[in-house]
Amino acid sequence: MAEWWSYRLSDFLLFSPRTYHRLFELYNAAIWPAQAAAVLLGLLMLGLLRRGGPVAGPAVAAILAACWAWVAIAFHLDRYATINWAASWAAAAFLAQAALLVWAGVIGGRLSAPPRLDAAGRAGVGMVLFALLLQPAIGLLLGRPWRQAEIFGVAPDPTAIGTLGLLLALAGPSRWVLMVLPALWCAATGATLRAMSAPDAWVAPAAALLALVLTGWQGLQRRRPS
């Protein structure tokens, strides 16, 4: 029996890269036109963030919760679980994130749109735009067909990155708690893509690290006496 340190990430992979990307192709075909609606919801959240007001924070939290619940059920349970037994645990985590967003942002009102975005908040908006518009194009640049694109609101990776960006742009005492599960997913999906030797394996972990660093910096800036 080989020693445990002789194993590589790829030894734990339960599916081939072709099977993984084909999964997205079948999923996208089955849920169309939900992708278009999800992108419009993403743009709506940016509009709410810019407009501000007392409704913006709860509305963004409610939309994000719906996206996380959709991905939990429609993707993880109905699709990903057919090739990966751990998908049921991922679904539970995504449903937990949806519940946290409802609890903190909708019921508790602990998220709000700041009157003015600071540098970190603007970077958060940039992350959202990346998740909405640029991340789906990564696969095309790597030679995968557009039918396998991962879309914000219905696929897990851009949903997690976009959520981190929105939380970075929002204000409220619950942001750190709400960033935990999206950041953990970014690390997990990075490991999965790394095991598949995917060139874009670094994207989600890098986005999570950036969001966490900027949130920490943002907190320090706000504690400084004016």
Rank of each mutant, 00 (worst) to 15 (best):
A2R: 15
A2T: 15
L9K: 03
L9R: 05
F12E: 07
L13I: 14
L14G: 14
S16F: 11
P17E: 03
R18K: 12
T19S: 14
H21V: 14
F24A: 05
E25I: 10
A30I: 09
W32L: 09
A34W: 12
Q35T: 07
A37R: 04
G42H: 07
L43E: 13
L44C: 15
L44H: 15
L46F: 02
L49H: 11
G52P: 12
P54H: 08
V55W: 02
G57C: 10
A59K: 00
A62Q: 01
I63C: 10
L64H: 01
A65W: 01
A65R: 01
W68H: 01
V71I: 14
A72D: 00
I73A: 11
A74S: 13
A74G: 09
A74Y: 12
H76T: 03
H76I: 01
D78K: 12
D78N: 13
D78M: 12
R79W: 00
T82F: 13
I83W: 01
W89D: 13
A91H: 00
F94E: 08
A104C: 04
I107W: 05
G108W: 08
R110C: 10
R110T: 09
S112M: 11
P114T: 05
P115S: 09
R116E: 14
D118W: 08
D118R: 09
A123G: 10
G124R: 04
G124A: 08
L129V: 14
F130M: 07
L132F: 04
I138V: 15
G139F: 02
L142Y: 12
W146G: 06
A149W: 03
A149G: 02
G153C: 06
V154K: 00
A155Q: 06
A155D: 11
I161R: 05
I161A: 11
T163W: 00
L164G: 03
G165N: 05
A169G: 05
A171P: 08
G172T: 13
W176D: 01
M179W: 04
V180W: 00
P182M: 14
A183S: 15
C186I: 02
G190F: 01
A191W: 06
T192W: 06
A195P: 10
M196Q: 15
M196N: 15
M196C: 15
A198L: 09
P205L: 15
A207K: 04
L214H: 13
L214Y: 12
L214F: 13
R223Q: 15
R224A: 13
P225G: 10
P225S: 10
